[in-house]
Write a protein that binds this DNA or RNA. Structure first.
Length: 431
RNA sequence: GGCCCUAUCGUCUAAUGGUUAGGACGGCGCCCUCUCACGGCGCAAAUCGGGGUUCGAAUCCCCGUAGGGUCACCA
């Protein structure tokens, strides 16, 4: 069986769109599942709208997601001669003809395809047979001049020359397929297999676009989403391997992916579910890896000791960055007596006595004994006998200086014996 | 409007003629608890409508209805 070749052909006329990323993912998954490869090219025949910065954004986004393509990236704008050769052939054998420009430019000629006005049927791997009557298309334009081919012509020639066997693209291309089929026939090319995947929809069920909020991959990256989560979530929008499992790595998706399980109907993009996937994948990162990503995300140094605390709470790296500031318990803190007394609910005498008692309790504990579990077993019996609230609250605030924080055992273990006792002493003093 | 596509909880989905229609997100409630989270348990919530076919239909067929895509010298 011939090697399977898919392709991802974005036009660099905007930042890497989330829907485009999913199309790339499906092509990647299908190719790799079958031991083939995904090719990459820029469709920049529209010179006006194509921009280098968009090319950069797309290339970086692809790399960030971990979707490697065959080293064949090129631009359609650099292949004029190839298109010209085929275009001339079409004119020569009468399949295309030059016609007057219908717009204002005088004397200009465009090339139109001579439509045979017939019915075409193609098989779609996700939708079955689809039939069109091409008559309504008329003699559509395929090139502005001999040197400026339009989309349909360039696509068909590139796919044939690159040996593309499977075209997997959004369903907004279904109606484009008829023109391309006609061109493929006229050029004598082999017809590839088609699979039109459902669109990613906005909450109002229309095609997801800028007016609905964030649509480019880089925006999600900036919001603290990790590629593992995007890949996992996007793969499950419009495709499902069956069963109830939801968490997959890119490699696992690759093993499972088949076109016959791609859905027919559009899927609404839901940021909350994406956020859940992000949290799950974030939790699966090792502390070292997590620290690295957080450093990269914030561009600042990260105290590795507090990463485990952040990891179990932050759903995104942006939230982790926020907690990083909030959990800066190790730095200088000051005490507000009202806070130590839980806004007056605890009497000054009571809090101060318990804190003193805790210091006495902790004094004999060796440095190595300052683990959260150890400390809990030492402090809890005392707290239980005296009342948890009046013991634990002042202690936690003494250590964190804050209204909200992790539990006092975790904090004490984090800062060690010396700092713990010093903070308790200072808290007593401030009372 | 023409052509094309689609239709299971609010959302993502499971089910490939036989299930009390399952799971997840979100929501709500309870538990855990010194705080904020995390976590655990539970509840509500769906087969668009109408006809067939069949012993039996979410599933197959037809007709409606609704939604979407596309109708460029853009891709």
């Amino acid at each position: 069986m011939a090697k399977i070749i898919t392709r991802f052909p974005p036009s660099p006329t905007g930042n890497f769109h989330i829907g485009s990323a999913r199309t790339a993912l499906f092509n990647y998954l299908f190719a790799n599942h079958n031991g083939g490869e995904m090719l990459f090219r820029f469709e920049d025949t529209d010179r006006e709208r194509s921009k280098p910065e968009f090319e950069k954004d797309i290339i970086e986004g692809l790399a960030w997601l971990g979707l490697h393509t065959a080293p064949s990236a090129f631009r359609q704008s650099e292949r004029t001669e190839i298109y010209k050769k085929h275009l001339l052939k079409l004119i020569e054998n009468g399949a295309a003809f030059e016609a007057e420009d219908s717009t204002t430019t005088l004397g200009m000629k465009v090339v139109r395809f001579k439509n045979p006005n017939k019915t075409v049927t193609f098989h779609d791997a996700v939708r079955g047979d689809i039939t069109f009557d091409t008559t309504e298309l008329g003699d559509f334009i395929i090139a502005r001049t001999h040197d400026l081919p339009l989309y349909h012509l360039a696509v068909v020639i590139d796919d044939a020359e690159m040996g593309v066997t499977h075209i997997i693209r959004g369903e907004d291309h279904i109606s484009n397929t008829q023109r391309q089929l006609l061109l493929i026939e006229a050029l004598g090319f082999v017809r590839p297999e088609y699979a039109h995947i459902p669109l990613i929809l906005a909450p109002d069920k229309s095609k997801l676009s800028k007016r609905h909020g964030a649509v480019s991959l880089s925006e999600y990256r900036a919001q603290g989403f990790v590629p593992e989560a995007l890949v996992n979530y996007l793969a499950l929008l419009g495709w499902n391997p069956g069963g109830e499992r939801e968490l997959y790595t890119l490699g696992e998706l690759e093993k499972e992916f088949t076109l016959d399980r791609v859905h027919k109907s559009g899927a609404i993009f839901n940021i909350e579910k994406l956020t859940w996937f992000n949290f799950e994948h974030l939790k699966q990162l090792s502390n070292e890896e997590y620290t690295m990503r957080l450093k990269e995300f914030t561009g600042r140094d990260v105290d590795a000791r507090i990463v485990p605390l952040i990891k179990e709470r932050a759903q995104t790296l942006a939230e982790a960055a926020r907690l990083l500031g909030e959990y800066d318990f190790l730095g200088a803190i000051s005490y507000a007596p009202e806070l130590l007394l839980q806004g007056g609910k605890i009497a000054t005498e009571v809090a101060s006595n318990h804190l003193r008692a805790l210091a006495v309790l902790l004094e004999p504990v060796p440095d190595e004994g300052f683990s959260a579990a150890q400390l809990k077993s030492i402090i809890m019996p005392y707290a239980d006998s005296q009342g948890r609230g009046v013991v634990l609250w002042p202690l936690r605030v003494a250590l964190s200086g804050r209204e909200k924080s992790p539990d006092p055992f975790t904090l004490a273990a984090l800062m060690g014996k010396k700092e713990t006792l010093a903070r308790i002493a200072r808290a007593v003093e401030s009372l």
